[in-house]
Each structure stands twice: as C-alpha cells, then as structure tokens.
Design a protein around this nucleic acid. Sequence first.
RNA 1: GGAGAGAUGGCUGAGUGGUCGAAAGCGCUCCCCUGCUAAGGGAGUAAGGGCUAAUACCCCUUCGAGGGUUCGAAUCCCUCUCUCUCCGCCA
Length: 425
Amino acid sequence: MIDPKLLRQSAADVAVNLARRGYKFDTVAYLLLEDRRKSLQMETESLQSERNSSAKSIGTAKAKGEDITSLLAAVENLRDRLTSSEAALQEVQSLLKDIELDLPNLLDDSVPDGKDEKDNAEVRRWREPSELRFKARDHIELGENLGLIDFEAASKISGSRFTVMKGPLARMQRALIQLMLDTHTEEHGYQETYVPYLVQAEALVGTGQLPKFEEDLFKTETETPFYLIPTAEVPVTNLARDAIFEADELPKRYVAHTPCFRSEAGSYGQDTRGMIRQHQFEKVELVHFVAAEDSMAALETLTGHAEAILQKLELPYRVVALCAGDVGFGSAKTYDIEVWLPGQKKYREISSCSNYNDFQARRMMARRRNPESGKPELIHTLNGSGVAAGRALIAVMENYQNADGSIRVPAALQRYMGGLEVISA
RNA sequence: GGAGAGAUGGCUGAGUGGUCGAAAGCGCUCCCCUGCUAAGGGAGUAAGGGCUAAUACCCCUUCGAGGGUUCGAAUCCCUCUCUCUCCGCCA
C-alpha cells in the first residue's frame, strides 16, 4: 500500500510513477472521495467529542444529585446523528481502502523503462551458456528416458501441471533444498523457519496477493477459508505483522523451504509440458526485514545470496533488472535471476528478488522503533527465491547431461546424495 | 469430539456503569544522590488515526473480534475467535 498521506498530497506525482507500469491511477475520483472522507471524518469526530463531553457532564451532575433532565434533552438526537455520520464515514473509508489496496507499489527511480520482459535490462552474467557436443535433451526427455519422471502418473492422480519423480531424481531435488538451506543458514546468516502452508486471507492481504490476485490462489471450502501458500514469502513476511522491532533486532533474515501452490490461471498454453510451470513446486525463500534506509543495499545482498547457490552448482545464469512494466504488483524494484537451460536454449527465471520497501509493511503494520526519535516507523521488507528447487533441478539435469542421457551429480550435491556421482538408467 | 477456565499497556496484574488510556509492581528512559558499583529519591514511559509546515498543540479510536443496551461500557447482553487445563482420539 502506498502511504495515503502521499496519495492525497501528491496524487499527480503518484500517478506519473504508476503510469510507468502502465497503471492508470484515477486521481480525480480518488481526491473527490478523499474530500468527502475529510469532511465526514471531521464531522464524525466532533460529534464523538460532543458525546464524550456531554456524557461526562451528565455524570458529574448526577453525582452531585442535580437534575439532569435538561441535559438529557440536549443530547436527545445526538446519537442518531452520530450513528449516521459514522456509517457514512465508514463507507467512504472502505471505498478509499479498496482503491488503496488495488494500487501497485511506487517504482524505484532506478527501474528501467519498458513494457514487458523484452525490455528487461541485463545487469550481469556468470559463465557463458554451456556448449554441448551433442544435441541437448530437455529435462522431460531426460527424466522420462531414465524412468524417473512420470507425468502420466501425475496426471492420473491430479491432472495437468503436476509431476511424479522417483529415485535419485526425487532425491536430487531434496539435495538441492538441503544445499540451499545449509548455505543460507551457515554462510549467509539466515534463520531457518518452518511455517504454515495454509494461511488466512489476512496474511495474503498483508503481502499483497489479496484482494487483487485471488484467482491465482487455491482456496479451501472450510467455513473460514484457508489459502494454500503461493510462496513462503506469505507466512514468513507475516512474521512481522503488528510487530515493533527494536532497532538492534534488525536486519532480520529468514529462510524457509516450502511447497508452493499456484493455480496458474491465465497462463494457459505457457510451459504446458514439463516441470517448468506447475501447480505445486518446491522453493527455498529468503526474506529480509530491514530499516528503511538499508533496503536498497539489502536487495543487492539478497540477490547475491541467491546467485551463490547457482555458483555452487556451477550453472550459467544472468541477472536482469525488471523493467517498469514487468515489475510485480508490490515491488519497488526486482532482479530476476535466469538460469541457462540447454534443452530450451534459453535463460529461464529461477529466482526473483524484490524490494517491497514499505508496501507490505504498511499493509501489515510491521514497524521498528527509531532509535533517535523513539517512535515506531515502518520497516522495509524484501524477499527472493533462493532458489526455486524444481527449476534448479531442471537446470542441473539439462546442464549436467551426458550424451548417453545420464546426468552427472554436481560436486556440491554429492554429499547430500550419499556420494552418488552419476544418475543413469 | 466432550468438560471447564481465561483473553486488560513491553511484562505481571487490579479494575462489575461515569472524573479509567486504565491502580500497583516489574522493565525501560531521564534527573538527583552516591568517590565507583549496589541501594535510595524524583519525573516520565501504549498504539493507530485526524488536523497541521510540524515527530508542537488539540481532537478521535482502541482493554481478543464483531454486534447490542445506555446520555455514558474495560465493566451489562449476544455472537464469534483464540489460549490454557482435563478427558477422548491421533502423526
């Protein structure tokens, strides 16, 4: 959420910023509503004040044994006026809130202009794309030939966009997760967390998935619905909800491995084959809570932590700065890390690292105590995949394949796989 | 699933219709005292929102959440949620 104060004081500036995303902010409608809010709120609060003082004087008069009938008459219709004023105010406030929850975050000035992913700016590359001396197979062919990936079985059980994996391939995904968790906790200073996979709507409003992107989520039909988490970002970031951290508690870094569930509504026809885009996938997620002035530096650090995983796995990748039109709803700035997939001869997203600045913090009242003023102020939140395990598995399969269809186990993973060096049929 | 108890400020914990944003204690901050430390004395110490140039005044809201009664609710009534204890069941 954007600061409502900024919205009403500088609506035009906000509109200019959001227009870079292709978002049209109707400042006229907003300011009109805001005017009504202001007058209704002032009216309501003065009626409340009147109620409070009259109740107080009735109380004292009664205590002295004075006659209070005239005082009672004076406030006869006060309650009705107050009730209707309060109702009108509440209605306007909820309309404003709807608009505010719908507005994407302000973009950081450093975000490059552009409309879609084609305009993203490459920031750096690590290792050039690998050249194979034979025709590269994609992970689907590799996995099925080894008899270790079974899409048919998955579709029998659950339909499309699910995967069944077996044996050393299933284990390799687990090994990847272990490597990531160990690296982030032992080398990058993260605290490992275990969190719920089912969350309530409020948590998703806090991180920004709701109310706008409900169709991307799976939801239970229980009396109070649960949502399956689309990313560990949701439960982990909500650890800061309603909190006031002391200055010396920040920065906080959390890492969590969770499955992620996405309905992928609206992505029909994209990546329909294979494991790239699934309804269920495994991911290791990094989350930072930092003081406002530290968040841009933290984004660089966080991205570096995700890159370290790919470097350990010796997978060629590049980092791109998402352009204005491609940056996600709640993010002020995002780097995607794209890993090279020989089977597709393309770089594909394997991590997305974002600085949300105070956007999520404002939605969930996540604060720190400013050591100078002693006053609470919003923190900044960041998150990034460190990295997507399913896609990391794909990247290892395709980059470590041999001519005979077997797959070498990256050195960094061997200790997690009982010393296994090659996966073969 | 059954039975009971509870939810108040950073913490402990008083408060059954008015002057209660809320006693007391602890903690924390500042000051005094003390050669240092300890002990002691004094003052202060919730969050959100509105107004505003203002993190100054002033005003509003908040005692688990929502509704109701009342001139007036932490206190009375209703609904819900959560926590704890015991029993059952279970990974």
